[in-house]
Computed example of a mutant assay.
Amino acid sequence: MYLQSMTTFVLVHGAWYGGWCWRDVAPPLRAAGHEVLTPTLTGLGERASEFREDIGLRTHVENVVDLLRRADLRDVVLVGHSYAGLVVREAADREPERIARLTLVDAWAGRDGESIDSLAPEFFRNWVESITTDGAIPVPPAPSVGVTEPDQVAWLESRLTPQPRRTFSEPTRLTGAVEAIPCRAVLCTPPGPMPFGELARGFGWKTVELESGHDAMTGAPAQLARILLDDA
């Protein structure tokens, strides 16, 4: 008789989202016998009442580090979507002994001192600046992340919440420890205007393509779950 070993997945959402976005991704992972945690970062999702202008990347890194430490998690597959690529890489850099591997889903990835502001195309930075009010970036329309089916649009747009502007400007702090952790990048295809593929290739990571809009959790959850199960 063979016993399947259990993996702990920590799935971290991107900007404007919350832990709710993994609704259709987590069940297949749990059905395969794995533990799945889907934290919501400070000021977002069901924690929107905690919004403050001083919430930055470091706040969200601390969210993930605190979870890893409080639950004493080990051999974790740490997954970050979009903005959370920066979050999970810094958290892994802080706690490398707890992380078995990283999976970045159509995600930003930077080196020490870089931020979304420094990595993003000029048009995106200009758009963010033009709409930011009182330290908050308003919710983008669902089609901008590749979600166009009416029921999915309604579901998504009823749950998205404004993103603290500082999370895009605060630079990541890395010692280099994260670079020793195996990492794979899931690239949604056809690619959009953001340099996710270029960033992943710049780090030399293995990549896998997923036919989906940027919001793969909504548009292709079963396919994304199958890819994540390869990391278990």
Rank of each mutant, 00 (worst) to 15 (best):
L3G: 14
L3R: 12
L3V: 12
S5E: 11
T7I: 03
T7V: 14
V12G: 05
G19W: 05
W20S: 05
W20T: 03
C21L: 06
W22L: 01
D24F: 11
V25E: 08
L29A: 06
A31R: 15
A31M: 07
G33V: 09
H34C: 13
E35H: 14
E35Q: 09
V36P: 02
V36Q: 01
V36G: 02
L37R: 04
T38C: 13
L41I: 01
L44H: 02
G45W: 01
G45E: 02
E46R: 11
E50S: 05
R52G: 14
D54V: 11
I55D: 03
I55K: 00
G56M: 08
L57P: 02
R58I: 10
T59E: 10
H60Q: 14
N63V: 05
N63Q: 02
V64H: 01
D66N: 09
D66E: 14
L67A: 02
R69H: 04
A71D: 13
L73D: 14
R74E: 11
D75E: 14
V77M: 04
L78R: 03
V79F: 11
G80R: 02
Y83F: 08
A84K: 00
A84S: 07
A84Y: 00
L86H: 10
L86W: 08
E90S: 15
D93H: 08
D93I: 04
E95T: 10
E95D: 13
E95Y: 12
E97Q: 10
R98G: 05
I99F: 10
T103P: 07
T103H: 09
T103W: 07
T103M: 15
V105M: 12
D106W: 10
A107P: 03
A109H: 09
A109C: 14
G110E: 11
G110F: 07
R111Y: 13
I116C: 13
S118M: 14
S118K: 07
L119H: 05
P121W: 08
F124T: 06
N126K: 12
W127F: 15
S130G: 11
I131P: 03
T133F: 07
A136M: 07
V139N: 09
P141W: 03
A142N: 05
G146P: 10
T148V: 13
P150M: 00
Q152E: 10
V153C: 06
A154E: 15
W155E: 11
W155R: 08
S158E: 09
R159Q: 08
L160P: 03
L160K: 05
R165W: 04
T167V: 03
S169Y: 15
T172V: 12
T172K: 06
R173V: 11
G176E: 09
A180R: 06
C183E: 00
L187G: 02
L187F: 01
P191I: 12
P191R: 15
G197R: 12
A200H: 06
A200R: 00
R201W: 06
F203D: 04
W205K: 01
K206R: 13
V208R: 13
E209C: 02
E209Y: 10
D215I: 07
D215G: 11
A216Y: 00
M217C: 11
T218H: 04
P221Q: 07
P221F: 08
P221T: 15
Q223K: 09
A225Q: 01
A225N: 01
L228F: 02
A232P: 06
